[in-house]
Design a protein around this nucleic acid. Structure first.
Lengths: 165, 165
DNA sequence: AACCAGATGATAATTATTATCACCTAGGTG
DNA sequence: CACCTAGGTGATAATAATTATCATCTGGTT
């Protein structure tokens, strides 16, 4: 079997480990360890639901009634920046459409958001053979590769070479 | 080579073919063939940029100065419904986060938007070996499988069995 | 204990998308 | 070919997620 649902049981120990390392990882990323950040990462690691910002907000509010929704949004983005979380969806701020209905996938520049089509015949073959996945009936799929395009890589290199100070 | 950028040259003939079949496909989908819809699919097929609604709006406006932005949004969604276009991003109306940083992918129910993690070790192996892709430097990737969960499939079956009339 | 860069809370601003509704038109019907 | 009507459109308001702003607060270092 090529595709399989992830075993949920592994989540507990994994979350505990991640949580115990969190303070150290914040400091490594140059971030202060605040009660809000702890509460947010805890809520995120404790959820298998791929929650939205407002769900995290609701969960965290129980212990931190004064926390602001803006803080939750900001913190989740920050966590993604230091590699403590990832966004399941949308690298883009608005929907993008594609008229090409031939099966294909996408590379997206995370900086300028340019998109190029790519083909991965072997992946399409794997997916074509899989119409059921646990309790799900497969309808379609799309692979998105996050990348840096030439132009943006060049710009970034310039900035790295001579950081303003 | 497992992954490769799609050759752009193929787009012209492909677009011409799709365009010539468009009216028939609309009727098959029970849709009227309006000048607006024609203009929008034409703009979409003519673009390799995976455009946003507002870009399509700008393009179409040149020939149809009175078209409404709402029509463009509506039409693009309609085109997706009848399989004439697809959304490159965001099945969701808001961002969703994941605390699990172990490489994995997602199945999403297109109805209730429930998400489950899946593992595809073979895909991860393909991707791990690919740090360059044409002019792009690969940073990460995520596969999203669109599906229908058990519950939503059951609900849909009920509706299909007894369509109200 | 004091300091301050960075974090937070409160709120306003922004922006993509959807809803509403009066009017219009594609495409069948007599 | 003129007419009819379900469905489509334009204009605009409403909604809702996210981001910006800014005064205040605090983690962590001195």
């Amino acid at each position: 079997m090529e595709l399989q649902l992830v075993n949920e049981r592994r989540r507990g120990p994994y979350a505990a480990k991640r949580l115990s390392e969190f303070a150290a990882r914040c400091r490594r990323g140059g971030l202060a360890v605040t009660p809000q950040r702890l509460a947010i990462i805890k809520a995120l690691l404790g959820s298998g639901e791929h929650p939205r910002a407002d769900a995290i907000f609701a969960a965290v509010r129980i212990q931190h009634p004064h926390i602001s929704l803006a803080t939750v949004h900001r913190t989740l983005e920050t966590l993604c920046d230091i590699g403590e979380a990832r966004k399941v969806t949308t690298l883009h701020d608005s929907a993008r459409y594609d008229g090409n209905m031939i099966p294909h996938h996408h590379v997206v520049c995370v900086k300028c958001r340019r998109i190029r089509d790519i083909e991965i015949p072997r992946l399409d073959r794997i997916l074509a053979g899989q119409s059921e996945l646990g309790e799900f009936t497969v309808l379609g799929s799309s692979l998105e590769i996050q990348a840096l395009c030439e132009d943006c890589a060049a710009k970034r290199a310039n900035r790295t070479r001579k950081p303003r100070r």
